[in-house]
């Protein structure tokens, strides 16, 4: 039996990046907040560049608690959706161009979300990574941590529960 030539790495990367871009670009609130994602393999880092309109306390200044919460919730929702999409795309069940929210992809729904504010958010870019602790057929439990200048000095952590996203093929 002839050995199949492996797919070029650039083709694989391109497919993953297009899928991620398509997902993120289709959610207006993610764009409103100026949040974007970087990818290493299947690992995502959410980035929220500092902007004056994310401030809640102009005297300090400090990020608004609501902006921090939104950042962490977006990081969690995208992580959960991405992990579902990843399987569909890697196993060739779906092409990136087929991603259409409401048709081929049903977004997760937040059941509850709890943020711990560990220190005030500085007027700097924020970074966040979410971890899926468990995803069953219906529910998922996700935790997420966020930092700014120092990876070891978290400024907020959060955990939440979600109705899991569905890929419809």
């Amino acid at each position: 039996m002839a050995k199949m030539t492996p797919e070029p790495v650039q083709v694989i990367k391109q497919r993953r990046d297009v899928a991620l871009r398509r997902l993120v670009a289709s959610i207006p609130y993610v764009n409103f907040m100026g949040i974007y994602f970087e990818r290493r393999g299947d690992e995502l880092t959410a980035i929220m560049p500092f902007r004056d309109d994310l401030v809640g306390n102009p005297a300090l200044p400090a990020l608004h608690g609501g902006a921090t919460a939104a950042f962490l919730e977006i990081a969690s929702v995208i992580e959960l959706t991405w992990s579902t999409l990843w399987n569909a795309i890697e196993n060739d069940h779906m092409a990136p161009d087929d991603i259409e929210i409401g048709k081929t992809l049903l977004m997760p729904k937040t059941i509850d979300f709890t943020v711990d504010y560990l220190r005030s958010g500085l007027p700097r870019d924020g970074y966040a990574r979410a971890r899926i602790n468990r995803a069953g057929r219906r529910y998922a439990s996700v935790s997420v941590e966020a930092w700014q200048d120092n990876r070891s000095r978290l400024f907020a952590t959060a955990s939440g529960h979600f109705i899991v996203p569905q890929v419809v093929t």
Binding site: I27, Y29, M33, G66, A69, A70, E73, T110, V115
Partner: peptide, 11 residues
């Protein structure tokens, strides 16, 4: 988005 609702409740 839940994040916007969260921001309102927090404020």
């Amino acid at each position: 988005h839940g994040g916007a609702v969260y921001a309102l409740l927090d404020t």
